[in-house]
């Protein structure tokens, strides 16, 4: 709080972290509890977009998203003993939930006209490339088989919302390596998702 936006540095969000731990420990029921939390954020973001764009304001997306991640995940929880693990799990969770979310919408849409949840309507997101969440998830799976670290980098950065520096800290490699991995992984995924021919193996 405050104009400096200072935050009190104590252990919050224990509930979410415990659920995360449970989920990564194989407790699928925990996912059921976590998903609404993520959806809540998602809807909050969506609502902001709607009201913002209509009133002609520009949306400070970076801040908004950071805030959402922070609210969901918080800072490093006190009882989480391994930071790297924590962030990795968060990113995995986000990947899982968002992909599931896309999948559910996809099936709803398929009933109507779209055979594919086309993302060509959202060029600013996937940059005019026809790609979708499910394809991304699958491609990431193949990347993990080929080069696990690169898939983790993508997971941490894209799904986990971490900066290169933060991802570097989590993976205990240099930010430079992260950026190199990131660069190659994006190219690889883009190719994978657009031709779908290469399986990289």
């Amino acid at each position: 709080m405050g104009i400096l936006g200072c935050s009190v540095g104590h252990s919050r969000r224990q509930d979410v972290t415990a659920l995360l731990r449970a989920w990564s420990g194989g407790d699928e029921a925990a996912l059921g509890t976590l998903t609404p939390l993520v959806y809540e954020e998602l809807h909050r973001i969506a609502r902001r977009y709607m009201s913002r764009e209509q009133s002609g304001h520009t949306l400070q997306t970076t801040a908004l998203i950071n805030e959402a991640y922070l609210r969901l995940i918080g800072t490093r929880p006190a009882s989480w003993e391994n930071r790297a693990h924590f962030f990795a799990v968060c990113a995995q969770l986000m990947r899982r939930i968002l992909t599931d979310f896309a999948r559910s919408r996809l099936s709803r849409k398929r009933g109507a006209d779209a055979a594919h949840l086309s993302l060509d309507e959202t060029p600013e997101i996937f940059q005019e490339e026809s790609a979708d969440w499910v394809a991304l998830d699958e491609a990431l799976g193949r990347l993990a088989a080929l080069d696990p670290r690169k898939s983790q980098v993508v997971e941490l950065r894209f799904f986990g919302g971490l900066s290169a520096e933060e991802a570097a800290e989590v993976l205990k490699i240099s930010p430079k390596t992260i950026l190199r991995d990131w660069n190659l992984a994006r190219a690889w995924l883009l190719r994978e998702m657009s031709d779908g021919k290469h399986d990289g193996a």
């Binding site: 764009e53 968002l98 959202t122 997101i125 940059q127």
Partner: peptide, 20 residues
């Protein structure tokens, strides 16, 4: 060609889609 690909955090992408 990668441009902005994956540069926008997933939560935001999903939020925008939902908004749309």
């Amino acid at each position: 060609q990668a441009g902005n690909f994956l540069e926008v955090p997933a939560l935001e992408v999903a939020g925008r889609e939902l908004a749309k």
